[in-house]
Design a binder for these strands. Structure first.
Length: 451
RNA sequence: GUGGUUGUAGCUCAGUUGGUUAGAGCGCUGGAUUGUGGUUCCAGAGGUCGCGGGUUCAAAUCCCGUCUUCCACCCCA
């Protein structure tokens, strides 16, 4: 048979795994610095945990796991006869692959509410699965790196999460724009325009502003049946350049004012000019996930065509659906795959010296091959990444291998070297070669390590 | 999920209105060079033309289905 992998999934080569680990390590390091603790949850959740949490569209994108055994024997006969897939699902599948890390986290918090100290700060780096149609930067299996705080409504955490975004991308050398908005501001716009009922329709339209322009947004709202007068009001509000101007538009919207105040408070915590990346208020930022209620975040990479590489926000009642009401949470997510793709495109990955092979031992004959293997042991014991060519064949062939492995040094041993103890130490880049004792070689390789 | 797009050697790609044995560059293997890689020269290996069906005397080429890739929509990391 012809080998293949499912659509939207990928294998990773050693080089790619090293690069991905660089991203994960950087993110994890920052999370830990800010006092977040790791948890992990299963790849599979009970379907009942997942369904209904991501809207109707989300349910369609959930991967369902078929029940084991003779699942059809227990299937809903009516649904089966009617060829009604959505009706049938509950009787043939009780589990599904997790769709994000937030909902499993909420489930986790509720199950362990009595052993958790609040505010609980956790991070989680694991893959999630979505049955989306794949595109560039969009996969069916991808890693998310989530940080959330649950059990506090302090806006200091919004500021902290913005700092985490800033710090991680600064460390990765990736220039980004960190956009912040507040769901209450959007609600305020709807309230001020007198279209509270059409909040979702309005939000979806506003979200597309940078893509389709003001005219497009207007058409979109018209198409969604929003009255002309309300559209004019929305357009006026959207022209507000900053939070001060926006405030003036919200004289008759309590919720809108509250949203602006929250944003002011976050920016106050952050201070001015203390970040590496731009952290900006963006009134057009909407985000789909319906459970957001306060501040919302999104990160856009500069200089590349790519969707958002991170997003998140505040949810006042994160754990309510699992029977623990009134607990507020705020968190953000890093999209590792997209960060990888962007960094690859911009060639931002550093030469990885920690995982790099430093030296390869080569030998001319059986006796020196054994001798080389014993030398190798000492080199490795000194903490230097090194290996030996598996057999003493023709030198040209062995050197080609060293070249391919991109190792900076080769140590060549034959009968002369064994007799004198002066091993041939060759710099692969310059081609220079000198006779050195093993201890001297180890010292040289150690110096190299530090560079 | 809707509409479109892509697939030919390990990689990047040619392949005419359907017509002999499907090509190139790079890479790979061997040799020139029996104690030294990268450069050069010579030789060689490597292909179910994504998969399945159909039309035809004849299909990489035309038609249908399917899988995959990418794009737009939807949604999102």
């Amino acid at each position: 048979m012809k080998p293949s992998i499912p659509k939207g999934t990928r294998d990773f080569s050693p080089e790619e795994v090293n690069k991905r680990n660089f991203i994960f390590d950087t993110i994890r390091e920052v999370f830990v610095r800010y006092g977040y603790q790791p948890i992990e949850t299963p790849a599979m959740e009970n379907l009942s945990t997942l369904t209904g949490k991501y809207g109707e569209e989300g349910d369609k994108l959930l991967f369902k796991v078929l029940n084991n055994g003779d699942f059809l024997a227990k299937a809903d006969e009516q649904a089966l006869a009617a060829r009604d897939s959505s009706q049938l699902v509950s009787s043939i599948s009780k589990r599904g692959l997790r769709y994000d890390l937030t909902v499993p986290f909420a489930r986790f918090v509720v199950m362990r509410q009595h052993e958790i100290t609040f505010p609980f700060k956790r991070y989680q780096i694991q893959p999630v699965w979505r049955a989306d149609r794949p595109q560039k930067g969009r996969y069916q299996e991808f890693y998310q790196c989530d940080v959330d705080v649950v059990g506090s409504d302090s806006l200091v955490y919004e500021a902290e999460l913005a700092q985490i975004y800033d710090e991680v991308f600064a460390k990765l050398g990736l220039e980004v724009t960190i956009k912040i908005n507040n769901r209450k501001v959007l609600a305020g716009i709807a309230e001020a325009a007198g279209i509270k009922d059409a909040f979702m329709d309005m939000t979806i339209a506003i979200d597309k502003l940078d893509k389709i322009g003001m005219e497009g947004v207007e058409k979109e709202m018209q198409g969604r049946g929003i009255p002309e007068a309300a559209i004019e009001k929305v357009k006026t509000i959207l022209k507000a350049k900053n939070l001060e101007e926006l405030k003036l538009q919200f004289t008759d919207s309590q919720i809108g004012l509250k949203g602006v105040e929250e944003l002011e408070s976050v920016f106050d915590y952050l201070g001015i000019g203390e970040s590496t990346n731009e952290i900006v208020f963006d009134i057009t930022l909407a985000r789909g996930l319906s459970y957001y209620t306060g501040c919302i975040f999104e990160v856009q990479a500069k200089g590349v065509q790519m969707g958002s590489i991170g997003g998140g926000g505040r949810y006042d009642d994160l754990t309510g659906v699992f029977g623990m009401p009134g607990t507020s949470g705020v968190g953000v997510s890093f999209g590792a795959e997209r960060i990888f793709d962007v960094m690859e495109e911009l060639k931002l990955f550093p030469e990885d010296s920690a995982t790099r092979l430093k030296a390869v031992f080569l030998a001319f004959d059986e006796a020196s091959h054994r001798y080389a293997f014993r030398c190798l042991r000492q080199v490795r014991a000194a903490g230097i990444n090194a290996e030996i060519y598996p057999e003493p064949t023709k030198m040209a062939k062995q050197f080609k291998y060293v070249d391919k492995r991109n190792a900076p040094f080769a140590v060549v041993i034959g009968s002369n070297e064994m007799a004198s103890g002066q091993l041939a130490f060759k710099n692969m880049r310059t081609g220079e070669q000198e006779g050195l004792r093993l201890e001297e070689i180890i010292e040289r390789l150690r110096e190299e390590e530090r560079i």
